[in-house]
Design a protein around this nucleic acid. Structure first.
Lengths: 201, 201
DNA sequence: CTATACCCTTAATCTAGGTTAAGAAATCAG
DNA sequence: CTGATTTCTTAACCTAGATTAAGGGTATAG
């Protein structure tokens, strides 16, 4: 693993915020004070079912998955997070209740992490972040709604194709088992889909 | 239809906001200035596919549904909104693009409506609303995530039962066709489920 | 009061996707 | 380099839920 976890490495996050709304110097310093780097080796968990999710993570490098294990023991991926994405269990984070989800590194990963306490603090000292996190949440919400729409009215093949379109940087980076789990199908069926598609063009 | 659309009738909304974060007098006045009552007769559309959604609606009385019509002509309900719920197509609203969704009244309905322009204005004049709408969005997001989880790992019968639990005020208020459409199944299959459940207890 | 539209149910048949099992290929740890 | 774990594929069979069709019930508008 070659990950630079130099504590001054908040730049990607400052860039990200700056694109949403320009930050003043003091706001930048607040970000540097409140967000801390954290690394995870491949297969390491960033959140384990049953624990309260006390952190809001911004991925600088690598890839994480947010997933649930159901009563039958099947895995379901809610979300992948690569560079410049956010990941957490929002429900556990806000309600301060044990999470029913897990977050696991699919690659060696570096995140910038803020705790619940520090985020509230950030909101108080710099209300601009109320707006930033509102916008960020709006974006997440839209993506989720799109996904519900697809689960309702598209076949697994259609969903696979639109996954390839929407996440071209991901499909050759993570195993097909994970993609299947994101699409809500079995790896066997994804394999069948891929074979069919190949037969076409 | 017996709906009081007296323009001073912002009280339910003020109550709603006040429960999240106490409002100052001037903020209350801003709410009264920016939100306007609007009524819809049963079956009337509050938003039509193809138009930009320019309004954020708070339901005071009645019931609306947010739904999509897919390529095959099938209907899929994303959300019902009754008293004290919000409804809009967030994607169209924020991106200012034509909506692919519809909103229709299932009962005679009264909403308090704010336009896109006025909401931005509200954020500028009273940053507290950045926070309020962030919290509101967090709540919506959590509900949606719960729903994705269910679509992944629960059978239609389980989803029906949890719908009954989660929305006890709704199931005897709207037709089963609508509930089926919310659950992502056909009315015929819902009928079968209800029969099975009756056979049990 | 009636007619029309909507709503609910049943039953037969069909299909997208799951399950089980098993082997081949690729990746990884020591 | 080598054994072990993970991943991918194929194929036979199975099931939740869709589709089609049809009859009866119930609002509701005129």
């Amino acid at each position: 693993m070659e990950i630079d976890s130099n504590p001054a490495a908040c730049q990607p996050l400052l860039d990200y915020f700056g694109k949403l709304i320009p930050l003043k110097q003091e706001e930048k310093e607040l970000v540097e004070a409140k967000f801390h780097p954290h690394t995870f080796a491949k297969k390491q968990f960033a959140l384990q079912e049953g624990k309260v999710c006390d952190h809001f993570d911004f991925v600088v490098k690598g890839c994480l998955r947010l997933f649930k294990v159901d009563e039958k023991g099947d895995y379901h991926v809610f979300q992948f997070a690569t560079e410049n994405y956010w990941i957490l269990d929002l429900t556990s984070f806000h309600k301060r209740i044990p999470s029913s989800l897990n977050i696991e590194a699919l690659e060696d990963t570096l995140v910038l992490r803020i705790t619940h306490r520090d985020l509230l603090d950030l909101y108080i000292h710099a209300p601009k972040f109320d707006r930033i996190f509102r916008v960020l949440l709006e974006n997440h919400f839209m993506q989720q709604q799109e996904r519900i729409g697809q689960l309702f009215s598209s076949t697994a093949e259609e969903r696979y194709l639109s996954f390839l379109e929407q996440y071209p940087h991901l499909f050759n980076r993570i195993p097909n088992t994970q993609i299947a789990s994101y699409l809500g199908i079995t790896p066997e069926f994804l394999s069948k889909i891929r074979k069919n598609l190949q037969a076409k063009g």
